[in-house]
Simulated assay, not measured.
Amino acid sequence: MGNTGSEKPVGKQIKVLQINAWHGATAVPGGFKGLLGIIEQIDPDIILLCETKHNNINVVTKLVDTLKILGKIYYGETSNGSASLMSKYPIESANACCASEVQGPMAKAYISIEGHTLAVYSAHLDYKHYECYLPRGYSGVSWKKIASPIDNADSILKANRLSERDESISAFVKDAKVEIEKGNLVLLGGDFNEPSHMDWQADTKDIRDHNGLVIHWDCSVMLSEMGMIDSYRQKFPDAVKYPGFTFPSANNAVPVDKLTWAPEADERDRIDFIYYYPNSAWSLSNVSIVGPEETIVRGKVKERDSEDSFIVPTGIWPTDHKANLATFMIERSMTSKK
């Protein structure tokens, strides 16, 4: 029988929340309540978390137990590092992967939705050698002011590669290619502690203290080259109107000096991401930034000055980052019986 035009595609909408929990939701007074609140507000299907461990306690276990009391069932997976994930769908198997010699592993889990297997990766990449500060006149190692801003992209990238971020993403690329060959859907999210090359091109070189530079940051370049799609930039390719800043976020529960590391610069960047690998089984429906609309610029709270789409928390914001929400439509597999 032909399509009458009134039939709706069979599938399921999946909401993916990526968030940095900032010291296991302990850095902000009432942080755990705030983290719980944003999960209740958004009701995500998959949650990619980082900075989940603090004092050897993983906040994911507490979240799963508390949400269960509230009538919401989630399954949790933690790694030996600070990256974890949660899912409304049972986690079929999980393991830590993609560790470098120094940097801790990503959390990886397999989840089945609509007859498809999702290989889900949650990452928290190396925070050291945060060299997007060099053009802004700050060290990415000591986080102190330097004599003058660095205006050479090659030297900045050389310094940036002293981190373990590129090694972690190289390991991810190798691992994810195996999943893609199996036909699995691949999802990656986390705090990369590195900007995207798509946010440091000619259109932004003379704003945001980029110091006239175009920089092809390694991690985003490697992911783009393997075919991974940056969900925010897919929906909002204009990095001037839609910067999508995730760090530093304003937070009225925390003194401003605890939120900024370069207080005399415009240090705003998009360093938290949700990536996915294209497949005919799913499509990206929508993306939003989650968190306060205000940012921090030169050590002061700055009102929203972009066209970004925000989901503003109704309660305490638990972190110094903003979060990402991506909504996907996953079509039902022909082999699925449900």
Rank of each mutant, 00 (worst) to 15 (best):
S224G: 07
E225S: 08
N193D: 10
V254L: 06
D230H: 06
M198H: 12
G190H: 10
L213P: 03
A250M: 13
Q201D: 14
P255C: 14
G189C: 05
L185N: 06
N251K: 01
V254A: 01
Y242F: 15
E225C: 04
Q234N: 13
E179R: 09
Y242H: 14
M226F: 05
G212C: 11
N184Y: 10
D199T: 09
A253E: 09
Y242E: 14
F236S: 10
G227N: 00
I180F: 03
D191R: 02
D199P: 07
S249A: 15
D203L: 13
D199E: 06
E194S: 12
P243Q: 13
L223T: 07
A202S: 12
D206R: 03
V240D: 15
V186M: 14
I207C: 02
N211R: 10
H216K: 14
I180S: 03
E181G: 06
F236Q: 09
M226L: 02
G189K: 00
L188D: 03
G190T: 15
V186E: 10
H216G: 08
E225N: 06
N184P: 02
R208E: 14
I215L: 04
E225H: 02
P237H: 09
I180E: 02
I215R: 00
D199I: 07
M228F: 08
G189D: 00
T204N: 07
E181C: 05
D230I: 12
N251H: 03
F192V: 15
M226N: 00
D203F: 08
L223D: 00
V186G: 05
Y232F: 14
D191G: 06
Y242G: 13
E179W: 00
T246I: 07
L185E: 11
H210G: 11
T246K: 01
R233D: 01
L185P: 03
N252C: 05
R233M: 04
N211Y: 11
Q234V: 08
F245T: 09
K235E: 12
Y232S: 05
G183N: 12
I215T: 01
G183V: 06
Q234P: 10
L223R: 00
G212D: 08
S249G: 12
M228W: 05
A250K: 11
S220E: 13
I229S: 02
C219E: 13
P195Y: 08
G212T: 04
K241E: 14
R233T: 01
G190F: 10
R208P: 06
G244P: 08
R233P: 01
V240F: 15
S231E: 11
D209R: 08
L213R: 04
G227Q: 00
A202R: 11
P248H: 03
E179S: 08
E225A: 11
N193Q: 08
D209S: 14
P248D: 02
K235S: 08
C219T: 15
D191T: 05
K182L: 03
M228E: 04
Q234Y: 10
P195K: 06
G244Q: 07
G189P: 01
R208G: 06
L213C: 07
T204D: 09
V254Y: 04
G227E: 00
K182M: 06
H216C: 09
N211M: 12
W217G: 02
S224V: 04
D209H: 15
T246E: 01
P243G: 14
V240S: 15
K241A: 15
V240P: 13
